[in-house]
């Protein structure tokens, strides 16, 4: 059924502080970039309408605080995510090493029904910095890690220059859509027989 739910795709962006999560979201949604570093507090989302295979979807993109001390309420917003984007800075080995922690933390907290096949996308951001001279994580290394985690799609991006951002989010949307995550089916204890037919009736009764 083309339920109302499937037109909304929820995406969570995770990664260390300062890797450019907010900038990637802003570049994608608003086509804007600022060089200034501004920490994110709590969780914040922006939405964007995307056209995919002749259908219109709303991407709900959650940007999160990379610094733990600005995540005081926990991560209840992970619930119902359709895709998780892991971001690191190609100029920081530590941010790359931490991808594993972010991935595992997400799988534990969001507990998707099929963790093996839950869609992740990895973005290696800031490829523009210093013309690539200060880069410390090679593309090969990043791709090897992605391959070892079940062939996670990988993109090298620059939020500043807008490199690959559109492509990456296209892929994110596609994977979110393919995600097997269905909302838990709820059946009420008592059914009001007075109203219309089956509890699971669909839009085709008109």
């Amino acid at each position: 059924m083309p339920s109302r739910r499937r037109t909304l795709l929820k995406v969570i962006i995770l990664g260390d502080s300062g890797v450019g999560k907010t900038s990637l979201m802003n570049q994608y949604v608003n086509k804007k970039f600022s060089n200034q570093y501004k920490a994110t507090i709590g969780a914040d989302f922006l939405t964007k309408e995307v056209q995919f295979e002749d259908r219109l979807f709303t991407l709900q993109i959650w940007d999160t605080a990379g610094q733990e001390r600005f995540q005081s309420l926990g991560v209840a917003f992970y619930r119902g995510a359709d895709c998780c984007v892991l971001v690191y800075d190609v100029n920081s080995m530590k941010s790359f090493d931490n991808l594993n922690n972010w991935r595992e933390e997400f799988l534990i907290q969001a507990s998707p029904s099929d963790p093996e096949n839950f869609p992740f996308v990895v973005l290696g951001n800031k490829v523009d910095v210093d013309g690539g001279n200060s880069r410390v994580v090679s593309e090969k290394k990043a791709r090897a890690w992605c391959a070892s985690k079940g062939n996670i799609p990988y993109f090298e991006t620059s939020a500043k220059e807008g490199i690959n951002v559109e492509e990456a989010f296209q892929c994110i949307a596609k994977n979110a859509l393919k995600s097997g995550e269905e909302e838990e089916i709820y059946l009420p204890d008592t059914i009001d027989v007075g109203t219309s037919s089956q509890p699971r009736s669909t839009g085709c009764e008109c």
């Binding site: 605080a65 600005f70 995540q71 005081s72 309420l73």
Partner: peptide, 19 residues
């Protein structure tokens, strides 16, 4: 209160993001 702090702080984040 400490758990709730980010709800208040987030307004400052929003302010910093206003173009």
């Amino acid at each position: 209160r400490s758990e709730l702090r980010d709800l208040v702080g987030k307004n400052l984040h929003v302010l910093s993001q206003i173009e």
